[in-house]
């Protein structure tokens, strides 16, 4: 069972350095730090618990295998992880030919009912999913990374492969969409 710990930025950087050198334990600590964040990022893109688990694990595996090529000069470790997670989600969607994962009204109701029945924590999931369902997959990624995970515009630009300025403009527009949708 994982012991959840809070890590200071300097310690986090040290862990990344050690992991890059091949320290498995340091990587284990990074896993603890990022597991929830990567999981929920993936989850709100695929809307499937088991698939999200699978993609999350693959993200950490792939990240470890590519660590020797990781350079802090190219971006932060968290943007490195999110980029891998995002690419795996895209690969999955491509394979399944599910170009759009927008929830239909029917799916929404079914999922919501199931989730509410399952546990109280799922009420939050339902709320968030409902709100995000008005956005396209790409837009959802940007909102999650910026507004929910509070990543910098530069980091998000690195993850989604867009210019920082374009991301900034998009975030404002998307937040307006979410707010307006609330009124409906």
């Amino acid at each position: 069972m994982i012991e959840w710990v809070f890590v200071m930025p300097n310690e986090y950087k040290k862990l990344v350095k050690e992991a890059v050198k091949g320290d498995k334990n340091a990587y284990g600590e990074l896993y603890k730090i990022f597991l929830d964040r990567i999981y929920r990022f993936v989850y709100y893109l695929v809307n499937d618990e088991f698939l999200a688990e699978d993609i999350t694990q693959n993200t950490f595996l792939k990240a470890w295998n590519g660590l020797k090529n990781f350079s802090p000069a190219k971006g932060t470790f968290q943007s490195y992880l999110y980029t891998i997670a995002r690419n795996l989600v895209i690969d999955h969607q491509r394979k399944k030919k599910e170009i759009s994962i927008e929830l239909t009204i029917g799916e929404n109701l079914k999922s919501e009912t199931d989730l509410v029945d399952n546990a109280s924590r799922n009420e939050s999931i339902v709320e968030v999913r409902k709100a995000l369902s008005v956005l396209s997959e790409n837009d959802r990624q940007i909102v999650i990374l910026r507004y929910f995970e509070e990543m910098s515009y530069d980091e998000i630009a690195g993850v989604v492969g867009k210019k920082s300025g374009a991301v900034r403009v998009k975030v404002h527009r998307l937040l307006e969409v979410l707010k307006n949708n609330m009124e409906k």
Partner: peptide
């Protein structure tokens, strides 16, 4: 509304399975 949404989003954590044996599987 947005604040609540963010707060709700952050309540979403990894599944119990991942928390319990996720790292062991990766290791």
């Amino acid at each position: 509304f947005l604040e609540n949404l963010r707060s709700e989003y952050r309540k979403t954590g990894a599944t119990l399975h991942l928390r319990q044996s996720g790292w062991e599987d990766i290791a």
